[in-house]
Design a protein around this nucleic acid. Structure first.
Lengths: 329, 329
DNA sequence: TTGTATGCGTTATCAG
DNA sequence: CTGATAACGCATACAA
């Protein structure tokens, strides 16, 4: 239309106006505006060998919906906001098979990846062919991996402090509850063990209460847990999600909380303060977790790896509410 | 490597094996396997003029994180699962500006769109340039739009029934609470009004309690609402999210629920049964909402518009728990 | 059954 | 400052 080359147009599109005569800049801008030009990102990606796509992959077991858990929902929202504001686009996958993950990130030529729930071996597998930066949220044993950034909490310390607090309230028969015993849950269990040991209390595996993560067996599982709970006066839960479930199951079976048995949570998601009694729990800033993850990733992408920390440990804080009874009084 | 043309390779990649000699199929498959070939989707998209991307856009006001609300989290998870299982890829945006939305869907050449929270005028705006199918979740006034599919509930009826139930429990001074009065919230308000009117009770706008959606003014707002609630014996809330907040604010200010005042919710998200007293609410199947949305969209995309319903109204069901008192007794 | 040739919309290199 | 021109990796109409 304007009898100028694609190069010239491309230059004004990218704001390289010093290389174009002011007259042309003006003419081209006008037409661009008038026709409300939209670049074809696929073509751009093909030519430029990048994609402006950041993937977020969260591991699932079975057919669950991870985003029902407020923790993952909030995390996703935080990541989306930050990814967008940095000029990237977010693709979301809930997967349990790393091969699938690899297929997607390679085919789309994603610029970077945020993972949640995947373990060391799986990340290594991805890296065999995917050479771009990966942010790993809430995992251990991945600190030595190249081109990776770990974002997590002081899980062990936080669990240690919580357990110590409960012990300080006079409890001696204390259990730990989680849906598995690896990664961050394992770390939290270790923190619990440490506090128990220091206080000269039993910290054996027997006190590890395993809750099922699926929706199916949950009810039976919950009943069984209620039974087993008679052996304890307090239960340290690895998440608010499970703490709330247990809380209600116990109450429905006639136990009073915290009079009969004390419960603590982890995360301090919104509903931790919505259940009754409100949960004594460990607060983490989920919003910040997501933001930091993306910030570090983008620093790697923009070629400033020196500014990116390869390990970010976010602080936690105990929030004391009403679900733990002080037996001493 | 094999001295065959790209066409032949392309054909076996796409499983068009009838057009290729078995010998070649075998040879090519082997090499493909060996090198673990990954197609470059950007190139494929460019050539094929489609993208295999489905966008999910949820409208936000201000700087909030919509996915903290379990409703949106669960919806997103359901959509992701279905999109993936249908062979598409999900891009997620939380936006309030339709121009932004348009920019993204056009540049990426997305095959289809799922929107949530956008209203008639905004959808029309998108359609001025985006000619592909759009699924609109939970909106009214968009039924006549071409190439669109609406997925929603019988909001008015459900609110009507809930209000009627509360009236049946002997309540006369009943308020309605929501964060706005448009779209589905408006429909729910209409349902409330209808039930009140039929019972000869006042249904004026005065009884519309507006709760602020942001995190900031929320506390002040909540206090004010607690004050105003003294004029009522029951409050019909437009979501479990707000119902739980109000529930706790009221309890914290010393009111007993349901003894002093009754509360009902909407959605039946998981925490509706986790708060105490457990919420009497309207159940909807969020999982199915997301699945149906994607199913219909894909039918349009696969060129079977006759199989796609342009309006899907999902059923609701009252769930009676403990947050409403029967005054009659 | 196989191969050739062209185009998809953009970026990037390099010569003018 | 401007413009050819060659990639980018794949799909497809058409020819052989």
């Amino acid at each position: 239309m304007l009898n100028v080359s694609t190069t010239t147009v491309s230059n004004v599109i990218h704001g390289k106006t010093k290389e174009v005569s002011p007259a042309n800049v003006e003419r081209i801008r006008k037409v661009l505006e008038e026709y409300d030009y939209m670049p074809n990102i696929n073509a751009r990606n093909l030519a430029s060998k990048r994609s402006r796509i950041i993937g977020m992959v969260v591991k699932v077991n079975g057919k669950e919906n991870p985003f029902k858990d407020q923790f993952f929902g909030e995390l996703l929202g935080a990541v989306e906001e930050r990814v967008r504001s940095k000029g990237y686009n977010l693709m979301v996958y809930a997967l349990n098979d790393v091969q699938q993950v690899q297929k997607f990130i390679l085919s789309w030529n994603m610029d970077g990846l945020v993972t949640c729930g995947f373990v060391e071996g799986e990340i290594s597998y991805l890296q065999e062919r995917y050479k771009k930066p990966i942010v790993i949220i809430d995992d251990y044993d991945t600190d030595d991996l190249d081109n990776c950034i770990n974002v997590r909490l002081e899980d062990k310390k936080a669990a240690y402090e919580m357990t110590k607090y409960v012990i300080g309230c006079g409890h001696k028969k204390i259990a730990f509850l989680a849906d598995n015993n690896i990664n961050l849950d394992h770390q939290r269990f270790l923190g619990y063990c440490q506090a128990m040991e220091e206080a000269g209390l039993p910290d054996s595996e027997e006190n590890f209460l395993k809750i099922c993560s699926g929706n199916r067996g949950e009810q039976d599982n919950l009943k069984e847990l209620c039974e087993r709970s008679y052996a304890y006066t307090a239960i340290i839960c690895a998440s608010d999600y499970y703490a709330s479930m247990l809380l209600n199951a116990l109450q429905d079976s006639g136990r009073k909380i915290p009079e009969d048995i004390s419960i603590t949570g982890f995360d301090d998601v919104e509903y931790a303060s919505l259940v009754r009694p409100a949960l004594t729990t460990v607060r983490q800033d989920i919003q910040e977790k997501g933001q930091v993850a993306v910030d570090m990733l983008v620093k790697m992408l923009e070629g400033k790896p020196e500014e990116a920390e390869t390990l970010v440990v976010l602080p936690t804080r105990m929030v004391i509410r009403d679900s733990v009874r002080n037996i001493n009084k």
